[in-house]
Nucleic acid binder design. Sequence first.
DNA 1: GACGCCTATGTCGTATCTGACATATCATCA
DNA 2: TGATGATATGTCAGATACGACATAGGCGTC
Lengths: 105, 105
Amino acid sequence: MDKTKRTRLEAAGWRVGDASDFLELTAEETAFVELKLALADYLRDIRVQHGWTQTHVARVLGSSQSRVAKMEAADASVSVDLLVKSLLALGASRKQVGQVIARAA
Amino acid sequence: MDKTKRTRLEAAGWRVGDASDFLELTAEETAFVELKLALADYLRDIRVQHGWTQTHVARVLGSSQSRVAKMEAADASVSVDLLVKSLLALGASRKQVGQVIARAA
DNA sequence: GACGCCTATGTCGTATCTGACATATCATCA
DNA sequence: TGATGATATGTCAGATACGACATAGGCGTC
């Protein structure tokens, strides 16, 4: 498994199979985490492309810098709801959100 | 506004502008609700196409019949997380979920 | 080094979501 | 009509996610 992805999965709160090189996730769990990571990456892309800081985005969303950081990290404490709402609030369209989710890993 | 959609939005817990014929929702809120409705419809489609009952789906998901009913109604108490996880658990792919979201209203 | 700015991580009280249960509504059929 | 099966609605205790705050790490510039 790709090391950076594994690290991101761990960071997102998913257990990594100790000695084994495989995550012990069902297919659904894997798909769900990848979906979240895709949204998180997209959120960061939008922010960086606009030259915004996490603090600025937090102000726009009515949230806090720390939560924005967790969103971009696809932290386990962040829901897909929050990611989707945030993306829409930052100007992404429903169609764009869907495309980001549908795009292959 | 289309009457059945309006009814569904109300049922989903969104306030409808009293005398006015328009929902007082921002563009983001509208997009978010439509996104949820699309997932809810898709969930029902999958279930019906397989000839499953809500009770059967609930058993598969480890949930209850009432929650499945609320999912299909895009009830305000149902998160996008739950809808997405349920769809994936029922065999939908990440790509399919994305396409359903991206598809125009 | 010290400062400023940005991002990451940990924790906490509160708000929201969840599964479960009870019950209601609605068909279909005998 | 009554009975049976499916779906809808209301409620609640426990679980999870939220914004907020504190603080740490990284990285330039002086």
